[in-house]
């Protein structure tokens, strides 16, 4: 099985270490991973801002880049969700349909396709998990607190396999962090307030590290943490699942 690794634009440019951790993790799990060199973005920034027509060319490029792989894996729930839900803006060719059906968020790929039941990682810290909305309510990587259905979380399931980790529960388990794409600047005041409240929930409950499947949320939270000097760090879930170094 040949896997196409999608590294979203903001990870490529600002968080290469998340891309590296994702790649190394997949390789450790025995995957044959390729990285199409001409990839850019999935098109979501334009779509969420109301200009999905401007996303068409970017989306076409995405399909062109990834159509030859067996599975497409991305360390983000948000972009994977965009490809699945919103690539109806493209002509539904076989390639488009194929890409939409075969794209996976990283944790979902590991639990559902690789069906991994153990992970060789160590991370002796108190970790709070932020369930990103597009991963949770878009891809259903975890059960929403609004629904009367049994709880599960594919990402927490993986985190719980890490040696030494202590998972910290927060008061509002799936409240949005306030990033929201261009929302984070067009609605700056609300966005920051939501982010502050989110970080405070983690800090109040004793988290030393906040992790998530989406770097966009973490980038927003980290911006707040650094400015407000909160005693907590952010790491992408791939960085924890790929970590073997003791404290």
């Amino acid at each position: 099985m040949k896997i196409g690794l999608f590294i979203p634009c903001y990870i490529d440019q600002f968080y290469p270490k998340v891309g590296i951790a994702t790649l190394e993790l997949l390789e450790k799990l025995g995957c044959n991973v390729g990285y199409p060199m001409d990839q850019t973005c999935c098109g979501q920034p334009m779509g969420n801002s109301g200009s999905e027509k401007e996303a068409v060319k970017t989306a076409e490029l995405f399909v062109k880049n990834f159509q030859t792989y067996d599975c497409i894996v991305a360390p983000t729930g948000s972009c994977a969700c965009y490809v699945k839900e919103h690539y109806d803006i493209l002509k539904q060719t076989d390639a488009t349909k194929y890409v939409r059906e075969n794209i996976y968020e990283l944790a979902e790929f590991i639990t559902d396709i690789l069906k991994v039941d153990q992970i060789d990682a160590t991370f002796p810290y108190k970790v709070g998990f932020h369930s990103s909305c597009h991963g949770q309510r878009g891809l259903r990587l975890a059960q929403s607190s609004e629904l009367n259905l049994p709880f599960f979380s594919k990402q927490k399931q993986l985190l719980s396999m890490v040696k030494g980790i202590e998972i910290v529960e927060i008061d509002r388990r799936d409240e949005c962090c306030g990033f929201g794409g261009t929302f984070c600047v067009t609605e700056e005041a609300v966005s920051v307030k939501m982010g502050k409240d989110k970080v405070a929930d983690f800090v109040r409950n004793g988290a030393e590290v906040i992790t998530s499947g989406d770097v966009s949320c973490l980038m927003h939270l980290d911006g707040i943490i650094k400015r407000q000097k909160y005693p907590v760090k952010v790491l992408h879930i791939a960085e924890i699942l790929n970590n073997t170094i003791e404290r």
Binding site: N48, G50, C133, S144, E146, G178, G180, G181, F183, S191
Partner: peptide, 14 residues
Amino acid sequence: MPFASTLCGSCTDV
């Protein structure tokens, strides 16, 4: 008004 949302989807589930 439609932009005053992060599209988190909590409304849809509730």
